[in-house]
Design a protein around this nucleic acid. Structure first.
Lengths: 211, 211, 211, 211
DNA sequence: AATGAATGAGTGTTCATTCAT
DNA sequence: TATGAATGAACACTCATTCAT
């Protein structure tokens, strides 16, 4: 059976569909009841595949959780990217990005449970949003607006700080309005002087496109 | 039977001893195999009490884990405090503190497992070291060396960033030498300009007293 | 300290009070959540005594449960006795008694949980109400209205049948109106012909005095 | 792979075997040490399946116990049915049935423990033997030998009375010879006059086939 | 007699993962 | 590759009971 290169056989299509359905189902269930309380069986059922089939696609529940987190991050990253090129000030791009992540995390109730696994979610954030975030930081550095030697280290620390902040807000330990100051603090991490950081943080910020 | 005020009856003594023994045992076992893998039975046995007795002191495994983390934080805080008053520059106190926490977390192998529960350990760090850290930040602000509005928010974000950094080092994703820059980034969060932060981070740093 | 015979010392009084308080507390808690779910500690607390004290009065939870059941039976028996002497027909006394037991069991929601332990409650009913019930049966036999050789055996079987009927009503498997027919069936057990039994069962029946 | 309608695949066979093996094992263990003392693990092991497998077939220990009781009832019912058609007098069929149940319950030591859960065993008896018993009662009514309006209610009460009687015999509170009178009492419940009931109860009664 | 801290036996149940079909 | 039945390890937690005080 010959097949043009790049063509996708029926089986390939089904595989892609299953994989995606599993991630969606995982997202749904995990966001609903938390990663630990989510059972692989319920996820499988929701994705309309047999219980054992999950393991043809993901080596373990942990891996599935990771992929779910990554998808969450990826979608959010795309939505942020979509409106990002409108900025003129390179210092604003990263600032806008982290603000929106915190906004999503503290606003969308589906994050509430996911945040409990801070290690996993911060990790996914680091990997998936990293390329964009680090690029943005470096651009701002190149433009003389940020000062930081190792953008990756800065981003690593930032992701955890972001998750920590979001967690505190979700737990009611911090008012959501502190988001401005949280942004300022994070800008401080990449060498933006306080005054300038406040000025940036206060600039109006376009809405993300609907999901 | 008269008893001087504040006197401690035998039963009170036993209770205090049991509680402390359980925390020690919990620390030992949890650090050795991780919080999840640690079993309450092993902890009870190590503390030399019956399995059910644990629950007279702690409502759940989770609570015990929290108390253990808090003790870890408390001890480290004390050791840091012990050498802290030698500094002349108020900006150095907090810097020294966070550096030492990261140093301990990335050096002492007993932290390796505890760090996996980043939420819990960051929480304990926030609560227990908070009073000192926030005081130090405020002093530095008062002395005109730091600039930050909400020291508590800054500390909240810092704890998570610290745990994230330590985790990355323990996982080999970041070289331990990055600790200087991590400190600099964290100082940026409290408004210390980059150059000054580097200067502070590079100052020699006294060793903590032995545990 | 001399004490007139029959006098009750303070300690005796307290003992009597404690015992009674424990039974009351046991009744309350067991009726509320069921015998199994009731804990000795909660009962002790409600009776305002220490946890260990319960065992100075009752050898085990099972015994306490038995005493509680017996008290329930005893109170009901007293209330029934209080109105029983108004009957002229000896055949009506027992009939009235069993009807009222079933009425109480299916009406008072506090019986719901107790009925689950059918063995225990039927046992208590047999022992405590037995003297009255058997006396009533024998009187009716002597008056030529009932025919049964072994009144105790009949009562033994009746108690279980009564509990079974009540259980079924509480579980919604039987309508409460079947109580008349249940009485008739039980009268058949002691040799009352069907027609006569129906006639007796339908006679108006005085209300029990308030508890 | 074609399969004749109604054919049973290997997997279906295994499922049926497992289910049955579990009920047998449950019967064995529960009868041996009582329902409460029986552990699911022991039952699973005896049935030669993994511990978790039990829960693929029964939702809980309680449900398994119920099924076990039902099987006990079912087998006994079959054995009774097997010899039941020899009777000429319709009034004798039910009488013979209840007598044999009590005989089995008080004779076969395996009932001893099961009887402790009177609610469960009476329930199973009601459900499983009900169809036969109620049919027999109705036949006798139709033949003018019994008089009772609601055969189901009568059977409900009878099952509990039967269990109560058996329990008392097993506990030595009642001599086994009382079985005749117990039958008479139960016949009274369905409107059989005392003399006639005694006559029926005393007729010789064929042995059940071996199990 | 009262207390209440200590005890520790005791187990049903879950569910991620495997594997025969 | 899909399936879903089978697996079995794994354990926190409860609470009736005891006993030193």
């Amino acid at each position: 059976m010959s097949m043009a290169a790049g063509a996708e056989s029926r089986s390939d299509r089904r595989k892609r569909r299953n994989r995606q359905a599993l991630i969606e189902a995982g997202y749904h269930v995990m966001a609903e009841k938390g990663i630990d309380a989510a059972t692989m069986s319920e996820i499988a059922e929701r994705a309309d595949v047999g219980a054992g089939t999950v393991y043809n696609y993901f080596a373990s529940k942990e891996e599935l959780a990771t992929r779910v987190m990554e998808q969450v991050m990826d979608r959010l990253a795309q939505r942020i990217e979509a409106v990002t090129d409108t900025f003129e000030d390179p210092a604003q791009v990263y600032a806008f990005g982290i603000r929106n992540v915190m906004k999503a995390a503290t606003t969308d109730h589906r994050w509430r449970w996911l945040l409990r696994r801070s290690e996993v979610i911060a990790g996914a954030m680091y990997r998936i949003m990293g390329p964009y975030a680090i690029r943005d930081i470096r651009n701002a550095v190149a433009a003389g607006r940020y000062r930081v030697e190792d953008a990756e280290l800065a981003w690593r620390q930032a992701t955890h700080a972001i998750v920590g902040f979001s967690l505190a807000v979700c737990d009611g330990k911090l008012p959501a309005e502190k988001i401005d100051e949280a942004v300022v603090n994070l800008l401080g991490m990449v060498g933006v002087p306080r005054d300038e950081a406040w000025e940036i943080a206060r600039r109006p910020c376009p809405d993300l496109p609907r999901e």
